[in-house]
């Protein structure tokens, strides 16, 4: 059990995946833009460099809160990662773990907001409030989109949803709308381009993380990268579960390929669009995505029920 927790598919595996995904993403984006991109060890080098840097906190910031926030969010993401099966391997599973995972995955958003709020810098405060606004815009359609597979499979357990797909086909094919909404929601959750509004460089410098440095910043970056991995794994499980239609490919391999595929989709999206304004995102979230997600749920209930 301890081995499962710490090495595979637990902490170490997620950590390596985070670094690898970060590299693939940056490399891919660079190629889309006609650049070379970083070498494979760049994420490791960045992490080591940040860990070695001096840790500075501005006066007026509670040092305990500032230290606890990145740790809490990292812990939340790792815990969420435990309930997400990787191919045929899973650490823990119970009925309703999807809801727990979704709760755990929204803790970093809250911590991110708090990190901006406790800071004394104006950019951090602005970034923090933007993060919260963004959270309200993407989270509702995201949750509703993820409810689609659960309703279809008649279970709130990720393993059951995967099992359901092994008898039929990918839910992404049955609910393409839900899949697209989930991807958009995930982009919003990960604060990636084009929804990197809370950390928009030309507007709020680095958002909540402006005043962070050294180890804490490294932890924040690691959290973000881990969140990418966990979010992608979650989507793969829910929408592209192991299906017998595609023949006897080992679950391990096909799961990895599917995850990288979603990652490439995210990279493409970040190369395709300009950053939205926060009010445009709110409009998009509530006027377009949320009604579409509602339609999706109604259809799923009608089919599933």
């Amino acid at each position: 059990m301890l081995l499962k927790l710490l090495i595979f598919p637990g902490f170490l595996f997620l950590f390596l995946c985070a670094l690898f995904f970060d590299w693939v993403d940056r490399r891919m984006l660079a190629r889309f833009q006609g650049r070379v991109g970083p070498p494979w060890y760049q994420p490791v080098a960045d992490l080591i460099k940040l860990l070695a840097k001096e840790d500075i906190l501005p006066t007026g910031v509670n040092p305990l809160t500032a230290a606890v926030l990145p740790m809490v969010s990292l812990a939340a993401v790792l815990t969420a990662g435990l309930y997400i099966p990787f191919g045929a391997f899973s650490t823990a599973s119970f009925e309703g773990d999807l809801i727990v995972v979704l709760f755990l995955l929204s803790i970093p958003a809250l911590a991110y907001f708090l990190a901006g709020w406790i800071s004394t810098g104006v950019y951090s405060v602005l970034g923090g409030s933007r993060a919260l606004l963004q959270y309200f815009s993407y989270e509702v359609p995201f949750l509703m989109a993820l409810a689609g597979p659960a309703i279809l499979a008649g279970s709130w357990s990720i393993t059951h949803i995967v099992d359901y797909q092994s008898q039929t086909i990918w839910i992404a094919l049955m609910q393409p709308l839900g899949f697209v909404l989930a991807i958009i929601g995930l982009i919003g959750k990960l604060k990636r381009d084009p929804l990197d509004i809370p950390k928009a460089k030309s507007e709020v410098v680095a958002g909540s993380l402006t005043e962070f440095s050294g180890r804490k910043l490294a932890l924040w970056h690691l959290t973000m990268n881990m969140q990418t991995v966990v979010g992608i794994f979650l989507l793969v499980n829910l929408f592209m579960g192991q299906s017998s239609v595609f023949g006897p490919i080992p679950a391990f391999l096909s799961f990895g390929l599917k995850s990288v595929g979603i990652l490439l989709l995210l990279s493409t999206a970040s190369a395709l669009y300009a950053r939205l304004r926060i009010d445009q995102l709110a409009t998009l979230g509530w006027r377009v995505l949320a009604p579409l997600a509602l339609v999706q749920i109604l259809v799923a209930t009608w089919i599933g029920g």
Binding site: A30, R31, F32, Q33, G34, R35, V36, G37
Partner: peptide
């Protein structure tokens, strides 16, 4: 096109 042409740097 950028993917096909490769890096320009």
């Amino acid at each position: 096109r950028a993917l096909k042409e490769g890096p320009h740097t």
